[in-house]
Amino acid sequence: MSTRNPFLTLNNGVQMPALGLGVFQSTPEQTSSSVVAALVRGYRLIDTAAAYLNERQVGEAIARSGVPRSDVFVTTKLWISDYGYERALRAFDVSLRKLGLEYIDLYLLHQPLPSDFEATVGAYQAAEKLLADGRVRAIGVSNFSPKQLEDLAARTRVVPAVNQVEVHPFFTQRELRAHHARHGIVTQAWSPLGGVNVYMPGDPKAVKNPLAHPVVVVLSEKYRKTPAQVVLRWHVQSGLSAIPKSVRPERIAENFDVFDFALTAEEGAAIDALDTGVRGGPPAEVVDSMRFSISIPD
């Protein structure tokens, strides 16, 4: 059993840390301090996005942390308002400038845009150019279904290295993960602790929190770990990448302290069995520029 954060080898040979820090819904002020706290604690993967409006603070925190740039794996994402080939290239330049970096490790399309898949394809083709030019080390997507991945593959040349999607014990995405495995795509989990069910519940009277499930609680007691640590260990042992978000230094440290124990195969299967097949976030089919009208400032 490794006591260090493992690396996942992407389909182009680039290595990505399995466990990282996400900064979705972190304010600019919170982002700077949380990223520094994470890097000091040993995190080496930081995940942001143009639409989070905190790329600048991520870059400032990396510079302030004292950790060499080459040791930090930085992910950011292109928002749907900038889809299309030329718009995507311009938006990348904006993100790079805000981050204050010379390159980005992983550049993702934030969502498929079913209402304008032509623009989605154009954006990904721009990402392919950025990869060919050496301005990014790997490219991928987020929130794509198997069908959308197939449609994208029919129009592009580079297989996405990563598909970042909702995955947690109540929504394990077995079919999508199997599709990823067949095509050499790493599954990266947003909301890996199931927080989307808490802060954005479909039914406020029926909030479903995986961390409160008896299976997870019993395991946390057995291993003298928190429920969150048990679930993050499940992600790591399942071969997934996970990017839990926190702005509290003690929770950031706790989320990284998952490499000194291991779940048995039976315990992992018990967590797998908690799957409800019900997502907490919106399905990709409903994403369009009218419903999600964020505009990214320069």
Rank of each mutant, 00 (worst) to 15 (best):
M1D: 14
P6L: 01
F7A: 14
L8H: 14
L8I: 15
T9S: 10
N12W: 03
G13M: 02
Q15L: 10
M16W: 01
M16Q: 09
A18V: 09
G22T: 06
G22F: 11
F24L: 10
E29V: 13
V35Y: 00
V36T: 08
A37G: 02
A38G: 14
V40T: 15
G42Y: 04
R44P: 01
D47E: 11
D47V: 01
T48A: 04
V58A: 02
V58W: 01
E60A: 03
E60S: 14
A61I: 00
R64Y: 05
V67E: 04
D71F: 03
V74F: 03
T75F: 12
K77V: 02
D82T: 02
E86N: 11
R87E: 12
R90P: 04
S95E: 00
S95Y: 01
S95M: 03
K98H: 09
L99Y: 03
L101N: 02
I104S: 08
D105H: 06
L106I: 09
Y107E: 05
L108W: 04
L109I: 02
L109C: 14
H110Q: 01
S115Y: 11
D116E: 05
A119E: 08
T120G: 00
V121K: 00
V121E: 00
A123E: 06
A127W: 07
E128V: 09
K129H: 13
K129Y: 10
K129V: 11
L130W: 07
R137P: 07
I139Q: 08
G140Y: 04
S142K: 07
P146A: 05
Q148M: 12
Q148I: 11
E150Q: 12
P160A: 02
A161S: 15
Q164I: 04
Q164V: 02
Q164R: 10
V165P: 06
P169T: 06
F170N: 01
T172D: 13
T172V: 14
Q173H: 07
H179T: 09
H179D: 03
H180F: 09
A181H: 04
H183K: 01
G184K: 04
I185M: 10
V186Y: 03
T187F: 08
S191T: 10
P192H: 14
G194E: 12
G194R: 08
V198L: 09
P201D: 04
G202I: 13
D203N: 12
P204W: 00
K205C: 09
A206Y: 13
A206M: 08
A206N: 15
N209F: 06
P210N: 12
L211H: 12
A212T: 14
P214I: 09
L219C: 08
S220L: 10
P227E: 11
A228Q: 00
Q229E: 00
Q229W: 06
V230I: 14
Q237I: 12
Q237R: 13
G239C: 10
S241I: 05
I243V: 14
I243R: 00
S246A: 03
V247I: 11
E250Y: 06
R251P: 05
I252P: 02
I252V: 12
A253K: 12
D260F: 11
T264K: 07
G268V: 15
I271H: 06
A273N: 09
D275E: 08
T276K: 13
T276Y: 05
R279W: 04
P283H: 05
A284F: 15
S289Y: 08
R291Y: 07
R291S: 09
F292G: 02
D298C: 10
